[in-house]
């Protein structure tokens, strides 16, 4: 390892030490929450008032401004957990466990909301709430993966062991992420292919793209805020548990 990468690794592990994390993340919570709130106010204003109805769907297009951000975060949150799983398995980093555990319920909620808003959009647009096409089925599997991971975290008493088992499970499940993303390109699906990041630019004008991007940013900041808060809670919980254990060890008669 060269001197430069060693220094970089040290810089990262200094910030990622649970104690250091508690110090620097604390002051960030309220500013992050403030940015999230502002983005939501602007985003909802664009999504509900300052954007035009679609030429085919009319006002139903507005469901997309909630559906797409949730679907994006459903996948992004899993990517965060997969990176954390590498941190757990390769570097045995305690903060990686905490990050993965804190992300799972958030990912489950984003995925459930993506499925729910998709159903609401599908009924008037396609004529059905649900069909077993590639995109929808793989997204449902994603939700089941999240629920399985949450259940695993609760099934183990020893959280260190839980972290390693779940990290392996998370990495196996990560194979589903490219399937969710590319299902619409690989197979005939009822769900339409991607609209924003495609060759030749977004398949929508600025008036529809603007609310979509602001809402996506708003939901992403919501994730960052909730993830940090949830990680802090988990670290404090673990400290409280170890204090309790130490206390119990010191007073065997109690």
């Amino acid at each position: 390892m060269s001197l430069d990468t060693t220094r970089k690794a040290n810089w990262f592990s200094r910030l990622a030490h649970p104690g250091a994390f508690m110090n620097w993340s604390g002051p960030m919570v309220w500013p992050l929450a403030g940015i999230t709130a502002v983005l939501f106010v602007v985003g909802v204003w664009f999504a509900l008032y300052a954007s035009p109805p679609d030429y085919q769907m009319g006002d139903t297009v507005r469901i997309m401004y909630v559906h797409v951000p949730n679907a994006w975060l459903a996948q992004f949150t899993y990517a965060v957990m997969a990176v954390a799983a590498l941190g757990t398995l390769v570097w045995r980093h305690p903060l990686a466990d905490v990050s993965a555990k804190a992300a799972a319920p958030l990912g489950a909620v984003f995925t459930a909301l993506a499925l729910f808003t998709g159903a609401l959009w599908g009924r008037p647009t396609w004529g059905t709430f649900w069909e077993w096409d590639g995109r929808m089925t793989s997204t449902l599997i994603l939700l089941l993966l999240y629920l399985g991971i949450i259940a695993l975290w609760r099934a183990f008493d020893d959280q260190l062991r839980a972290g390693r088992v779940i990290a392996v499970f998370t990495l196996v499940g990560a194979v589903n992420i490219p399937i969710v993303k590319f299902s619409v390109d690989w197979w005939h699906t009822l769900h339409q292919p991607a609209s924003v990041f495609v060759a030749g630019g977004p398949r929508m004008p600025g008036s529809i793209l603007t609310p979509l991007l602001i809402m996506t940013l708003a939901f992403t900041f919501l994730f960052l805020t909730l993830h940090i808060v949830s990680m802090r809670t988990e670290i404090l919980n673990r400290r409280a548990d170890s204090l309790e254990r130490q206390h119990a060890a010191r007073s065997p008669g109690a």
Partner: peptide
């Protein structure tokens, strides 16, 4: 029968304006 939605989104007013001018080509939506 299910309708399939494509990946294109367009404001209704813009499409009506294009139709009025006779410049509306569904392929242009992209």
């Amino acid at each position: 029968v299910l309708a399939k939605h494509d990946e294109n989104y367009m404001p209704r007013e813009l499409v009506e304006e294009l139709k009025r001018r006779g410049e509306w080509e569904p392929e242009d939506v992209a």
